[in-house]
């Protein structure tokens, strides 16, 4: 408990924090514990206003950047390296792209904040790939990101949300399907 208090900094899901010497499941602060308990996800502050809509309008697919969504458990937040595949050539003079280039030049990832995601104590082992193969549309869980500029958390990933869909699609609703 002392350690949990003493560290006192808020942890945010999988985001790296100022480091301490030990990895533990303990919450870093009462605030964090409360947030996790009530499944409250504060609105993320993105370093850059990434316009999803603009990219989809230019005929990019979700899977162009979230590459592993069809193959594995994680969709993946793209590295700045992925941005630069196009933006070393395209729209290089725009201020946002200049910022992206600056990150890339410094060898630093853009500190994107996760929009969705489960807290560790939910013990959910979510796997994207089988959902994509079952023809679940990205928008079913993530909202109409294609028409958003900055991605917002518009769907609440409660267990009820998951279970309803599993019922409709006749997928297993055993606890062990997701929690292990």
């Amino acid at each position: 408990m002392v350690i949990a208090f003493a560290l006192g900094l808020a942890a945010c899901g999988s985001q790296p924090q100022l480091s301490d010497a030990v990895f533990t499941t303990a919450h870093r602060s009462p605030g964090e514990a409360a947030r996790h308990f009530f499944n409250s996800h504060p609105r993320p502050q993105q370093p850059l206003a990434f316009p999803h809509k603009t990219h989809i309008e230019k005929k990019a697919e979700c899977t162009d950047c979230h590459e592993t969504v069809e193959r594995g458990p994680v969709a993946g937040i793209p590295s700045v390296k992925a941005c630069m595949i196009c933006h070393s050539q395209i729209a290089t003079s725009k201020p946002l792209i200049k910022e992206v280039t600056s990150y890339s030049d410094r060898g630093i990832e853009i500190p994107w904040q996760r929009v969705y995601g489960f807290y560790p104590e939910s013990h959910v082992r979510f796997n994207h790939a089988p959902h994509i193969r079952a023809k679940v549309d990205c928008a079913a869980c993530h909202g109409d990101v294609a028409n958003m500029t900055v991605a917002e958390r518009v769907v609440d990933h409660t267990m009820g949300f998951c279970v309803n869909c599993h019922k409709q699609k006749n997928a297993s609703n055993d606890c062990l399907t997701c929690h292990f």
């Binding site: 480091s19 301490d20 010497a21 030990v22 990895f23 533990t24 499941t25 303990a26």
Partner: peptide, 9 residues
């Protein structure tokens, strides 16, 4: 709470 001194985690 289980503990893994870094970088064992």
């Amino acid at each position: 709470h289980p503990q893994w001194p870094k970088p064992l985690d």
